[in-house]
Design a protein around this nucleic acid. Structure first.
Lengths: 342, 342
DNA sequence: CTGAAAGCGCTTACAG
DNA sequence: CTGAAAGCGCTTACAG
């Protein structure tokens, strides 16, 4: 319905075979020595009949759909929204369209979505996975579906992954806090702590304090109950082993929830509580106080992920680097982690 | 490569025709009186051989791809990111996958993207269009491609559109400011002011002040030069016909740019300058001061848009309501528009 | 209850 | 330079 005009129509209209038309339209005229004249007649007919090739038919024949599936936990999370945008630009520039799917950190939903994408014959998959082990995705990778992990890796699997230097980022934040006189951090992680990014941020952070002889309180909040969980955590300091003098929010959503909660309780940052966060947000440089955060190399991650994916998609037996590629992060020091007043 | 197992394989494996297998897999066993036993053997083979139907082949045959194209100006804009997420949920729940495309408010890019999506045989299109007239999209709609506009309409065309009550939202904000004693608003719009949403917000706002005998200064900033444009506007009040006592930011991005600029200039809100915004953001209820904003009915807009699109997609000669459907907005009064101190 | 056959709209050897 | 034919993997009348 949407496309009544087919190759046959235009072939008939020009008075040639559809083979010829196809060749011309695919830029193989030169190669097959098709006359300039014939080409022009074909192009004229295409314009006149307003022909648009049916990509579905082409895909069935060629085995390539020109589509990529991007799977993240939640496309409305600013980090993933920015990542999606950057990735979309790369994909579009290279002739691909991208399906975007949100998993809500649900392992089974992720599998359902990925299966659906594979049934749609996507040429490649870029996923920020919530799986707790590499098994399931490894099978997909081994079956020949080009797959690149982004943002999170799945341990020492042979899956290609492009991630931020999470451990180092955590360490940078910890050092900043320590230098400024903070000694008793509360780390707010996620119940999905098995996820590499979160786990490594926390490890990197805790290690630094440990090296200084300080312990951190580590608490987890639920992905779907972020706000209330964070609030009850901050509202009930008695439940912690010590009264924290600073906070490490493990991602932007946790930070936002914490800021919301602290604002409601009128806690002064950084005077009463220091605060640092992994993930930078535009508002972090606007609000009072500005928030110290680690900025992820989103553009670089997308660039590298797309590059690796493309290598796998052309698949000319090129050996694509398996393993984890870590990209450097940037520490943006702002007022929320300023020197603790005695 | 990704899918070596076809219907033929499983037909052979079970020892039946692929017609039968197809019927069973499409839940038509009942209808064709296929025995329970046969069905079970088919299902067993499917599981054993790990068969996944090739959606591309199915699409070519049925003319339905089970895909929808969502076209917005920028998926990384929080408003569109949230909208995309809501829409994705509805689509996924109904068996659709969604292509997401960003146009950067570029009319031609929008056309290129939409053409690409049509070539991919999407079953439907939801677009927040940057076109300055309805012509181009009307042709697509008339050609039979199910199309629903969202967020922005294209004038009194016969295109189906689901939008927020932009005019009313603008008026609500104006009334709030006026009641609080503000008299000299600076309206910061976008150079893409032809866009219905922006235009109506401004109209609704200005009308209210006009009704009170007050004039507004209206200025535009560029989509790609938002930050610097907003800043130079705020940094050079001499260029305005009067010194504004309040600001109306026409969307979340403008508001963010304004806040950034005002923070840098240490302008006190609302004491030195009142501020209201169209689009609510999580940070508006966190920052100091909290920001008065109109909240868009994103979930309702997506729900309605999907519903209308689906009607068009099944296309049982159902007469889908043409025209503009306006959904009510909500005014969230916060501190940034508090009473102006004399 | 079941199968052979046509066809969706392309691309690509193959033959001339 | 050009065309007839096969085939990608499905679904769906049609016939029995």
């Amino acid at each position: 319905m949407a496309n009544r005009v087919t190759l046959d129509h235009i072939a008939q209209h020009v008075g040639v075979s559809k083979t010829l038309v196809s060749l011309v339209l695919n830029g193989k005229a030169q190669q097959y020595g098709i006359s300039r004249q014939t080409c022009d007649r074909v192009f004229a007919a295409v314009k006149e009949l307003n022909y648009r090739p049916n990509q579905t038919a082409r895909s069935l024949r060629t085995g390539k759909t020109g589509t990529i599936g991007l799977v993240v936990s939640d496309i409305s999370n600013t980090f993933y929204a920015q990542l999606a945008r950057q990735f979309e630009d790369l994909a579009t520039a290279n002739g691909y369209s991208v399906f975007i799917c949100s998993t809500d950190e649900d392992v089974e939903k992720e599998q359902r979505l990925i299966t659906m994408l594979r049934n749609r014959q996507v040429d490649g998959l870029v996923v920020s996975s919530s799986q707790s082990n590499a098994e399931w995705l490894m099978a997909i990778n081994d079956s020949g579906t080009p797959l690149v992990l982004i943002d999170r890796h799945l341990g020492a699997s042979t899956l290609t992954a492009v991630v931020a230097a999470n451990r180092n980022g955590g360490a940078l934040l910890a050092n900043q806090l320590f230098e400024q006189g903070y000694r008793h951090p509360l780390v707010i992680g996620l119940s999905t702590n098995h996820i590499s990014s979160v786990a490594e941020r926390i490890e990197g952070f805790v290690e630094v304090f440990k090296g200084k002889g300080q312990t951190c309180a580590i608490r987890e909040v639920g992905f779907n109950t972020l706000q209330p969980d964070v609030h009850s955590l901050l509202a009930n300091p008695k439940l912690l082993p010590f009264k924290p003098d600073c906070l490490f929010a493990v991602n932007n959503n946790v930070a936002t929830a914490a800021l919301q909660s602290l604002a409601a309780m009128r806690v002064k940052i950084p005077n009463e509580l220091g605060l640092v966060c992994f993930d930078d947000l535009p508002y972090f440089s606007i609000i009072e106080p500005t928030i110290t955060a680690v900025e992820q190399p989103i553009a670089a991650m997308c660039g590298k992920a797309f590059e690796l994916l493309q290598l796998k998609m052309v698949g000319d037996s090129v050996e694509v680097s398996q393993g984890i590629l870590e990209l450097p992060v940037k520490l943006n020091i702002r007022r929320s982690s300023l020197k603790k007043s005695k």
